[in-house]
Design a binder for these strands. Sequence first.
RNA 1: CGGGGCGUGGCGCAGCCUGGUAGCGCGCUCGCUUUGGGAGCGAGAGGUCCCGGGUUCAAAUCCCGGCGCCCCGACCA
Length: 564
Amino acid sequence: MPRLTEYLLPTEREAPADAEAISHRLLVRAGLIRQVGAGLWTWLPAGWRTHQRIVQVIREEMDAIGAMEMLMPILQPAELWRRSGRYDGFGGELFKLRDRKDTDMVLAPTSEEVITTHAATLIRSYRDLPRVLYHFQTKERDEPRPRAAVLRSREFVMKDSYSFDRDRDGLDVSYERHARAYDRILDRCGLEWYSVEADVGAMGGFGAHEYMAPCPAGENDVVLAPGYAANLEVAAAAPQPVELPSALAAPEQVDTPGMTTIAQVAQALGLPEGALLKAYPVVLPDESLALVMLRGDHRVNDIKLGLALGSPFRQASAEEIERRLGPPGSIGPVGAQTRIILDDAVVAGAGAYVVGANRPDCHLRGVVPGRDFAFERGDVREVVAGDTVSGHRVRIERAIEVGNIFKLGTRYSDVLGASYLDQAGAARPVWMGCYGIGPARIAAAAIEQFADERGISWPRAISPFAVHLVTLGKDGSEERELAERVYDELVSAGVDTLYDDRDAGPGEKFADAELLGCPLRVTIGRRTLQSGEIEVQVRRGQEARALPLEGAAAAIAELWHHAA
RNA sequence: CGGGGCGUGGCGCAGCCUGGUAGCGCGCUCGCUUUGGGAGCGAGAGGUCCCGGGUUCAAAUCCCGGCGCCCCGACCA
């Protein structure tokens, strides 16, 4: 157990000028990490202690569901990635390099290719299934924009596990087990968290959940209602109603000189923005145009739109819009010779909308979908706060994604030849799932969620130390002797203790202790000698208690185990 | 990839516009004092001013090119 005079804990009074996120500022200030380059960070000793505590929690819960720890290399042959289609399909985030024999290699951002290749030769019979394998390994991703220190870095440790099952039902079981293990991991790490429905991504799949830790520095938006939680990327909800003007016998042209935005037109006509329809023109892979129509107060969700279209798409350029429909700013569905997707939030028949007229400076009102233009339906809009799920209004909040679980199916086993013989002797593809969780993000999320103006406040399970022992006495003083004794007792009692034995003033020591954020701070000074009591401060809430000097170490150990 | 900003001792910054050979606070070292909320006095150490080129008698400062880092957006198995 370290004495601060012999330990590397370079605390700083001021955060780096360019650090914005709380976790970034505090990780650096508390002496837990240092930067090496963009998205590249060194974990210093105390920081690594926290990281390793999180790793151990994850390890215990993975082992508890029968998963087997192993280790696969970071440096991998490009050939495997070519076979899976991800050598080019992964995008610019994949680090590519050559070895001395000029063989193409990659630095692995994840390990489906390698694990599936092993499965192809090591798993032969239905008797070999199910299996769950995992490792903690450094991941390499050439992120376009690393940010907020360890929140999004280019190199980080991730636990990734892979399940192998005989069939879809087996995968469901493995998936569910992982979900429960992740629940326990995040509970034990002391985070506020929830799991949300997630996008299955471009690689396909049969289901996915993300584990989210709410905090403002997060990069994801989560839609929440009682009994409902989903990533904004895939969330669906009932729209807030909008009062529509009644239909006209036929669409009627209105002049809207110079008005090219929903807000301008709505205001000029005295209508709510939701009574207008905005058009979002997209180009499909065959170069055909499709017009997505949704309420003026709503926005397109590109992921949901992609799912609804069933194909990739891109936004039409201004030039394409001009040439094939009309002037951007007043395009609309009436008379348009394109496929039209009408968002589910748009009602058909109960009123009329205002749409672009495909002519400059005018719109059409009294337009009734179905009567005035044909359409296909689709839920393609982004949920907004105030929409409802099962009658409950949703709210949207920011969160850090700390883990995810994903039903892969046979996408990798098919292309990498991972099959087994069933009881009838027939070859069948192995059904796979993959499951990731990031210790660094858990640490950062814990800081974000519990820090106060004085610094970090670690959840007990992941604090670098249980007790931060502060001695105020000068070397050789009576109170220093006492502190030394209590320190020895704490160490003997098995309490992880950081002992601040520096010859520094009390203000500096207290400030450093609160910055580092261990759950308990124990102070021994002259007062202790006078009162015969040791002061213990609980970091969360700064509650102070006094413990009798006699048997103090045991009482502190007790406090740590039960009350902290 | 688009937009914005910043590179000067370990950290935070000034100096740059108007060229004259680098300064402040904190930290660090030594001494003395101080010791329950970042204490005081004194003496010190420490800098290729991001890199390269150019202009000039002279460049941290002006010009050109490059590199690095941060923030916002796009992207993100």
